[in-house]
């Protein structure tokens, strides 16, 4: 890992900090980059033994229901497939999370890979956040179908994304491959323009 003072967010070149407002106030859409979110790819068949070992390492079991997320203490596991999860951690703790998973899963057939820098995370929230997503995403995002605790892989403005709804506000975390982050940010600002988006601290 790079020295902390050398680390740069994926969107730092946009100088979002300088545009960020302290109080988003009445903004109907708020956008931010969540910098340095830790990410660990976890693969394995969800046997009882596997789920228990992961539960021991994380403090919660990974969800087996498709397109749902579980979490505790700042960490979450997002279902990506029947034998695949994305474990997200606070900045700087992906390494220790991966180590804990490897130790708990010792001798089990699995794969634990730190992939923190592969994707950027864009936070999108506010009363009209859902409408912004609906402009470019084929998912059924109606509050009845997609709620807090749901996640899905899909496309947003043709970019592959992992979408995680973190609250019913609504608020979403959008995981996008690093090289698409600049493009997707520009698209989001444009799509949100009619709602007067506020850029906030990540």
């Amino acid at each position: 890992m790079a020295e902390a003072y050398l680390r740069q967010g994926v969107l730092d070149h946009l100088h979002l900090d300088a545009r960020a407002v302290r109080e988003p106030g009445e903004a109907r859409v708020a956008l931010c980059e969540r910098r340095f979110v830790g990410k660990v790819s976890l693969r394995g068949r969800p046997t009882k033994r596997f789920l228990a070992a992961v539960g021991q390492a994380l403090g919660f079991e990974p969800p087996v229901a498709a397109n749902t997320a579980a979490g505790k203490g700042g960490r979450a596991a997002l279902w990506l497939g029947p034998d695949e999860w994305l474990v997200v951690t606070p900045p700087g703790s992906a390494g220790e999370t991966a180590e804990a998973l490897r130790a708990a899963l010792k001798l089990q057939h699995c794969a634990v890979t730190e992939i923190s820098d592969g994707r950027a995370v864009i936070g999108l929230s506010g009363a009209r956040a859902r409408e912004v997503l609906m402009k470019g995403c084929p998912l059924d995002l109606h509050a009845r179908a997609f709620k807090a605790g749901h996640c899905a892989q899909s496309t947003l403005a043709k970019a592959l994304v992992i979408l995680h709804q973190t609250s019913d506000q609504p608020a979403y975390d959008i995981y996008v491959e690093r090289s698409f982050a600049d493009y997707l940010w520009a698209w989001l600002e444009d799509a949100a323009a009619e709602y007067g988006p506020a850029i906030v601290q990540g």
Binding site: A66, G81, P82, P138, L139, D140, A152, S154, T155
Partner: peptide, 11 residues
């Protein structure tokens, strides 16, 4: 079979 009904563009 896993995710339920999704748009053709995802496949």
């Amino acid at each position: 079979p896993w995710c339920g009904p999704r748009d053709e563009s995802e496949f």
